[in-house]
Design a protein around this nucleic acid. Structure first.
Length: 304
DNA sequence: TCCCAGGTCCTAC
DNA sequence: GTAGGACCTGGG
């Protein structure tokens, strides 16, 4: 299986993995389902398990395989991409990148936290939320925290949420937690629907079941937890990427000129064009492009 | 001090 | 239907 934790865990799709270097081999520790997992290239090891978990209902290797989307045929996915130089270079540069299949609830709250924040700040918020509202999982020499449950966040106070540095997002978090806890928003049933239906259901204006979930956050949940490959989250980085590399190829040059953000209808138009241009696995293409445009931008900044 | 950050919501045209 | 401002807050 082609999997590089370094690339995958730093690709902005997940925020709670921590990097360690032991005996000059880097490893990553994070929480998947009820397990604390140490991940190395091609190897996953259970470090600790949540005591309250029901061992009959989950199996370590199955949970890991599902999380890492091991059924994805990366060769076939990459073969389906258009032969353009920028994307092909991205695929070469970020070999081992996988689109994960995360828990939809954790993924949804993570990307609600991402609104108008940079990655270090998102990591901090999620860490604080887990420490304050999650369950402790003890390994031999360290303590980890599971991601908080909907019922816990649903009854969290404004003050306690603000202590986790989530700012104005506290309303979104508590509202969504209540919808999930009450069953009005059933993420499992959403995940079983088609991309279009599932996405619509997550976006507040159509369903009324969420608040604080627009097209970008919904697309992240579609791609990073429900494995809908047609999703193509368009954030500020993808907008820069499309403006500088793809606007002509996609016929969007007039629409995107000087744009710094997207309206709902322009977002949908960009998504439609991206789906047509990159094909049925455009979600994977987006992830390679996201890595490359950020990498190029940071490198260019360093050269200035 | 100002600007920005893996956006969304609300208001005024 | 759409542009423009507000929104918490930490860091550069």
């Amino acid at each position: 299986m082609c999997f590089d934790p370094e690339v995958t865990f730093e690709s902005g799709q997940t925020f709670r993995w921590k990097r360690f270097v032991t005996k000059d081999e880097p490893s990553w520790i994070g929480v998947i389902s009820n397990y604390v997992v140490r991940m190395r290239r091609g190897k996953a090891e259970c470090v600790a398990k949540l005591k309250e978990s029901n061992s009959n209902r989950s199996n370590f290797s199955d949970d890991i395989a599902n999380y890492l989307s091991t059924n994805d045929d990366l060769d076939r996915i990459v073969q389906s991409f258009p032969r353009d130089e920028y994307l092909q270079n991205a695929v070469k540069s970020f070999d081992g990148l996988r689109v994960l299949t995360q828990d939809p609830w954790e993924c949804l709250i993570s990307f609600v936290c991402s609104i108008n924040k940079n990655i270090p700040a998102i990591k901090m918020m999620l860490e604080l939320l887990s420490m304050k509202f999650g369950s402790k999982i003890r390994s031999s020499n360290e303590v980890f925290y599971s991601f908080p449950k909907p019922s816990t966040l649903a009854k969290a106070s404004k003050i306690d949420l603000l202590a986790c540095k989530v700012g104005f997002r506290w309303r979104f978090i508590r509202f969504i937690a209540n919808q999930v806890r009450s069953g009005k928003l059933d993420l499992k049933s959403v995940s079983q629907k088609s991309y279009g239906q599932a996405r619509d259901e997550l976006i507040s204006e159509l369903s009324g079941t969420t608040f604080g979930v627009g097209p970008k956050v919904a697309d992240c949940v579609m791609l990073f937890s429900m494995h809908k490959m047609e999703a193509f989250p368009v954030d500020v980085w993808m907008l820069r990427c499309i403006q500088s590399i793809y606007s002509q190829k996609m016929g969007l040059q007039d629409i995107l000129v000087d744009k710094k953000s997207l309206t709902r209808s322009t977002y949908d138009l960009v998504h439609k064009s991206a789906h047509e241009y990159f094909g049925r696995y455009c979600g994977y293409a987006q992830q390679y492009l996201y890595m490359k445009i950020r990498h190029d931008f940071i490198r260019n900044k360093a050269l200035v």
